[in-house]
């Protein structure tokens, strides 16, 4: 198998399929679980950014400053470094630094700030008149959030989440390289280090398919809910 020819990438008989499916499942699991948590956390952070930005009270300004600073800092740390930085925290939170579960904290912490910015942009893009109309009707702030902001920006929230999910898939591969499991891990250990090119190739193909599926689901959902 010590073979680097072009053909070696396509000798799929060298692929250990049960292992491949297990890795695929791990990648999907990491992506979906982190995506759900990123959606929740990003929505909350984005909402805080949006709500505190235009207020003049000192508390709103302080909260906005803190959240914006956190978001910007975590967004600018390269993912691979973030994983390493978070190793002690991961150990404390999850109890291990190996496996898909251990990848979650760094996946979430890197993607949530990104999504929070997209959420804030989605809210900013809403027509201010609609919010004023709701206020004129006597809506509470919470009613405005649940009945105006979120429903009216749903297409932007979903397409933002699609973009985030796809970069999460990329992150899971990177996390895999340092022991989180999944297709990235398999491609690195069994493919690259064991010089089994077919496994690297197959892992790549599956990741591409996963990305396509996510993109398709996202696009389809946006098309269905966008009534503008």
């Amino acid at each position: 198998m010590n073979n680097n020819s072009f053909a070696s990438f396509f000798q799929f008989s060298n692929v250990n399929w049960p292992k491949m499916w297990e890795a695929t499942w791990e990648t999907i699991w990491m992506t979906v679980v982190s995506m759900i948590l990123v959606a929740i956390l990003g929505l909350i952070l984005g909402l805080i950014l949006f709500e505190t930005r235009k207020r003049t009270s000192i508390w709103a300004r302080i909260i906005n400053w803190i959240v914006a600073a956190l978001v910007n800092v975590f967004r600018s740390i390269p993912f691979i470094i973030l994983i390493v930085l978070l190793l002690p925290a991961t150990q404390a939170m999850v109890g291990t630094i190996i496996g898909p579960r251990a990848a979650l904290p760094s996946l979430i912490i890197s993607a949530a700030p990104f999504y929070a910015r997209l959420v804030q942009i989605a809210f900013d893009d809403l027509d201010h008149g609609v919010i004023e109309a709701a206020k004129a009707m006597g809506a509470t702030n919470w009613q405005i959030v649940t009945k105006v902001l979120i429903p009216e920006s749903k297409p932007a929230l979903v397409s933002g989440l699609t973009v985030t999910a796809i970069s999460l898939i990329g992150y899971t591969a990177m996390a895999g390289a340092i022991g989180a499991g999944g297709l990235g891990n398999l491609a690195y250990l069994d493919g690259f280090q064991a010089n089994n090119n077919a496994i690297t190739m197959m892992a790549t193909i599956i990741i591409v398919i996963i990305v396509f599926v996510f993109q398709f689901i996202g696009d389809y959902t946006v098309k269905r809910i966008d009534k503008r």
Partner: peptide
């Protein structure tokens, strides 16, 4: 500008 909710 009417300010209706387009999602409803």
């Amino acid at each position: 500008h009417f300010d209706l909710l387009w999602s409803r």
